[in-house]
Nucleic acid binder design. Structure first.
Lengths: 113, 113
DNA sequence: CAAATATATGCAGATATTATTATATATGAA
DNA sequence: TTCATATATAATAATATCTGCATATATTTG
């Protein structure tokens, strides 16, 4: 079971505009490097670097097919993260009545900003 | 409705070990700055800086109560993200049969790594 | 008002990320 | 074998991020 620290690290790895687009594209199926190169209009080395990072963290893996590398999703957290990321939220969280149950919080009061 | 770019930005803001712990703590209820200072054992200015960033992105907000700032969660995506982050995944995603439905992918084949 | 408390802000230095360029490797084709 | 294609890696330079420290602001207390 992955530690919470590792999970945050993973989140950091995912939290990049290019890498999110890569992952979102992989959600639809297998893709090779030059597919991304075209789709994202960034350089091939740059695509490879992002994929390398994602591989390093076990987020993706690939099959070799001739001179192609066919990348696919491997970490099951990815579809869930992408799902949350696309979800629409209509309302903010309900604000607490106000105010503190904080440790220091036993001040005069009646202020609320 | 938030753009996908903004959501990834938000993800980047969240993806930090200290900020995740702050958010996870706020999930349980209102907390003031010095509560975090103690809980996280980091300096007060550092706590304030992280909170400032979270405020800037609308992730948290606060009430003023005397000299306390009582922080609370505001962005509804946070509990969902934290939920996914804590979830346990037993298996990797099923690997595709292999191989490409990639644009370039019509090579001789039968390789698979 | 002065002192103490709670928090915020600005800046400097260290460190980490990112894209770019050049180069290397492996495969398939001629 | 030689050439072209697909991808990876290395080195670099530009940029962003993070922490720590000093200081500022606001509020309450005496």
């Amino acid at each position: 079971m992955r530690s919470i620290g590792k999970r945050v690290e993973l989140l950091r790895v995912i939290a990049h505009p290019v890498r999110i687009r890569i992952l979102d594209e992989l959600l639809k199926g297998v893709k090779c490097v030059s597919d991304f190169e075209e789709f994202l209009s960034i350089s091939q080395p740059n695509v490879s670097q992002h994929l390398s990072l994602l591989r390093q963290y076990g987020v993706v893996d690939y099959y070799i097919d001739g001179r192609l590398r066919c990348y696919f999703l491997r970490d099951p957290i990815i579809p869930d993260i992408l799902g949350v990321l696309k979800k629409d939220y209509m309302e903010e969280l309900p604000a607490p009545a106000c105010c503190p149950i904080t440790k220091k919080g036993t001040y005069p009061r009646e202020r609320m900003r």
